[in-house]
Simulated assay, not measured.
Amino acid sequence: MQSFKDKVVVVTGGASGIGKSLARAFLGEGAKVVISDVEQGALDRTASELSAQGGTLRAIVTNVSKPDSVNALADAVFEEFGACHVLCNNAGVSVPNNNVWDTTPNDWQWVLGVNLRGIAHGIQAFVPRMLASGEEGIVMNTSSGDGGISPLADQSVYASSKAGVSIMTECLNAQLVGQNTRLRACIFYPSGGILPTGIWTTKRNRPAELAREKPAPDGAEMTFEEFMSGMKDIGIELPVQDLDELAQFALNGLREGDFVIMIGRESMEETLVERARKLARGQCPIEHGLHG
């Protein structure tokens, strides 16, 4: 897809962070953008901010973990615009770092519900209609290197969900290509440095019925600012990736028809090769230790 002008773009998790930057970038290209988010107040503020730059923008409250909510989003998009050309399944949440045996059932229920099933719901609601339109289209699913490439031991819930996203997207694209459709799917790995997104504070949107069944361990939850300050205190300066630049990179990847959209993706080869070597030797590919 070489041009996004007048294309209809849907971005879930669009009220903040990467989703907001993606929406801004698509608007700048002349697309008609629909942002959705579970957080009404943030969605309203972002809609007001982005509308000021001109173009066509709609904001619809959506809980991607609920199939009916995602179907309602698709209904609204196709009723108003008659099409969806780019679907960005971007909404995501996380839980405190923990040993697997110290996670709780609700940790898994919430994260998998949003990060994995949420993307499945997006595909189920939008792709049949996108196929029926006969128009060119792209489904871009936001995964993470933590899971899709090199999972971190202390982030088992989040990493598991994102590994699932990567595999789901591989299957989806293979099916779309194999059946000679005009749709394609791709994986977006946010990258380039530490990302100042709302993922650090997603507990603000955690449903009461899915609250942790026991308190999080001390120090397991921190804001982006607290994390960066802690790193600085021990002498580590980490690069921070500008989210608007990341969004522009993603749009360029869509234009190029890349299946994997990731800054510095060439570096994943050795990581994955070494992972494969360890697995082939019957070894665990994740290093021992909390941050292995």
Rank of each mutant, 00 (worst) to 15 (best):
E213G: 04
I236T: 07
L183W: 10
G41A: 13
M228W: 06
G193V: 06
E266P: 01
H288C: 00
D68T: 12
E135H: 10
D244V: 04
G282F: 03
G82K: 09
V33A: 07
K203F: 05
K20V: 04
Q241R: 15
H291P: 00
L183M: 10
F78Y: 15
C171N: 13
A83C: 09
W108P: 00
G257Q: 07
G235E: 11
L131R: 11
V114S: 03
L57V: 09
K203I: 01
R45S: 13
S160K: 02
A280L: 13
M130Y: 02
V77Y: 13
G122D: 04
D244E: 14
G292P: 07
A208L: 11
I234M: 14
V86S: 02
L290V: 11
Q53S: 15
L172F: 11
G118L: 11
S161N: 07
G148K: 05
K203P: 00
W200L: 06
R255Q: 13
V70R: 09
G137V: 02
A247N: 08
Q109K: 14
W110Q: 01
R45P: 00
T46M: 03
I35D: 03
R182H: 14
R277H: 11
A159C: 14
I123H: 04
E245T: 14
A72S: 14
F224N: 11
S144T: 03
I35C: 03
Q40T: 13
A163E: 06
G147P: 02
D102G: 00
V64R: 08
R184L: 05
D233N: 12
L112Y: 15
G122C: 08
A247F: 09
H85M: 09
V111R: 00
F26V: 04
L290I: 09
M262H: 12
H121G: 00
G264C: 08
Q124C: 00
S133E: 01
M222W: 10
L43Y: 12
C84N: 10
I234R: 15
T12A: 03
Q283F: 01
S48T: 15
G82M: 09
R184Y: 08
S166D: 12
E209I: 08
P239G: 11
